[in-house]
Design a protein around this nucleic acid. Structure first.
Length: 279
DNA sequence: CGATCTACCTGATGGC
DNA sequence: TGCCATCAGGTAGATC
């Protein structure tokens, strides 16, 4: 569920709240969440005693940097949440798989019902300024913005439908099913337009739509849909969903032209768009 | 190369 | 009330 704006919201909160905290103890109850490690104890050993030095992000991955150049990488998958609690006595929610307790008090908990998310500790590759596990990711549209002419070049090199391309993490990192639809509406482009058929003006609209939609969503602390699955580290919802122009608005009037918003299945995923505004 | 399907999981919801 | 199908913000791998 969480896409770039939700992960960035979490990153900013952790940056303020968790940096310089020292990890006193770690418990892993859901082995699947640390599946990249041969055993949970590996994961625990690399964390205990470390201090949090900083928090960065690439696409939907959160990188919690430690004081020894190791990095705790977290991906929330479809249903993952990070919860910052004041006391170990706070009741644990079901599906709490990893609990990090700080020396200064309080905990950071990883909760993930569907277990598509994960946490792992790895080392930064000094040469690439990245961790090897994330080397496949494309550029981050906010953290490592590229010029629109470079974006144009990338689009022209491909012959793919726009929506799957925007969701391809190797092409651009951080956009998922929800923001892809919102970005395409902002750009006035249909999901099935072919990347190398866009005019220069359309490319510019797509680029702007991408940057502006993601930036606006971060200002509103991300989107929390009806199931309230996305919450920030303090348990609060985002409110960008109230500004969605197409996603989850099937049958409702387009906010721009009043035409009815349509939902279609594209590659197995729900796709919402305005048949009038998007061409 | 690009598109489509499957698998990985749990939980909520709606129809009957 | 139960049961079944469908759906859900993600990713990776297989197949055509």
């Amino acid at each position: 569920m969480p896409e770039l704006p939700e992960v960035e919201t979490i990153r900013r909160d952790l940056e303020k709240d968790a940096v310089s905290k020292k990890i006193k103890s770690v418990s892993v109850t859901g082995k699947r969440s640390t599946r990249r490690h041969p055993a949970p104890q590996d994961f625990i050993n690399r964390l205990e005693g470390r201090k949090i030095a900083g928090v960065t992000r690439k696409g939907k991955y959160l990188l919690i940097r430690l004081d020894n150049k190791d990095v705790l990488v977290t991906h929330l998958g479809m249903s993952g949440q990070l919860q910052r609690v004041k006391s170990p006595k706070d009741p644990e929610e079901p599906h709490t798989h990893v609990v990090i307790t700080f020396t200064q008090g309080g905990q950071l908990r990883f909760v993930d019902p569907r277990t598509f998310g994960e946490m792992f500790v790895t080392s930064e590759d000094g040469l690439v300024a990245d961790v090897p596990e994330l080397a496949h990711l494309g550029f981050d549209p906010l953290d490592a913005a590229i010029s629109w002419t470079e974006f144009a070049r990338m689009l022209m090199q491909r012959r793919a439908m726009l929506k799957p391309l925007l969701m391809d993490q190797e092409f651009v990192a951080g956009i998922g099913n929800m923001y892809a639809d919102e970005i395409l509406f902002a750009a006035g482009l249909r999901h099935d337009r072919i990347s190398n058929s866009l005019t220069a003006q359309e490319i510019r609209r797509l680029y702007r739509g991408m940057v502006e939609t993601l930036t606006e969503a971060i200002k509103h602390r991300g989107s929390s849909l009806a199931d309230e699955q996305y919450r920030d580290i303090f348990g609060d919802s985002g409110d960008f969903q109230s500004l969605h122009r197409v996603y989850d608005r099937e049958g409702q009037p387009c906010r721009r032209c009043r035409a009815v918003v349509v939902r279609e299945k594209v590659a197995g995923r729900s796709t919402y768009f305005c048949p009038q505004c998007q061409v």
